[in-house]
Amino acid sequence: MTWRRRGCLVIGRPADSFPPFPSHFIQELTVADLAFVVTTAAVFALVALIARGVTKL
């Protein structure tokens, strides 16, 4: 037996038997995304600060 769930092939289990994503999992992903954005912004700010210092030399 095969069933389809969200476009992927699932063998042996109906689509309704899959549990939804737990809320803490989604919350962890949001925190990880936020940490990535903040880190990326900090790196760009540091590079800009270094570039400004180099141009003054």
Rank of each mutant, 00 (worst) to 15 (best):
M1C: 03
M1T: 02
M1V: 01
M1Y: 02
T2M: 05
T2G: 01
T2Q: 07
W3P: 01
W3G: 02
W3C: 07
R5P: 00
R5V: 04
R5I: 03
R5A: 08
R5L: 08
R6V: 04
R6H: 08
R6W: 08
R6K: 13
G7Y: 02
C8G: 03
I11T: 10
I11S: 09
G12L: 02
G12F: 01
G12A: 03
G12S: 05
G12V: 00
G12C: 02
R13D: 01
P14W: 09
A15M: 03
D16W: 06
D16S: 08
S17F: 04
S17Q: 07
S17H: 03
S17K: 04
P19G: 01
P19R: 00
P19F: 01
P19K: 02
P20S: 07
P20N: 09
F21S: 14
F21V: 15
F21P: 14
P22W: 12
P22K: 15
P22H: 13
P22G: 14
P22E: 14
S23V: 15
S23T: 15
S23Y: 10
S23K: 14
S23C: 12
S23I: 14
S23P: 13
H24P: 04
H24R: 12
F25H: 13
F25I: 14
F25E: 15
I26R: 15
I26H: 13
I26F: 11
Q27W: 12
E28F: 14
E28H: 14
L29V: 08
L29W: 11
L29P: 06
L29K: 13
T30I: 13
T30R: 13
T30W: 11
T30G: 09
V31R: 15
V31F: 14
A32C: 11
A32D: 10
A32Y: 07
D33V: 06
D33C: 10
D33A: 11
D33W: 09
L34S: 12
A35R: 15
A35T: 11
A35L: 12
A35Q: 14
F36T: 12
F36L: 11
F36Q: 10
V37N: 13
V37F: 12
V38I: 09
V38T: 10
V38K: 05
V38D: 09
T39V: 01
T39Y: 01
T39H: 00
T40K: 15
T40H: 12
A41E: 10
A41T: 03
A42V: 06
F44Y: 03
F44T: 00
F44D: 00
A45G: 04
A45R: 00
A45M: 08
L46P: 00
L46I: 00
L46C: 06
V47P: 01
V47T: 04
V47D: 08
V47N: 05
V47E: 08
L49C: 10
L49N: 03
L49M: 08
L49A: 12
I50S: 09
I50M: 11
I50G: 05
A51G: 07
R52T: 11
G53S: 10
V54N: 05
T55Y: 07
T55C: 07
T55H: 08
T55L: 09
T55S: 10
T55D: 04
T55K: 08
T55M: 04
K56N: 08
L57E: 06
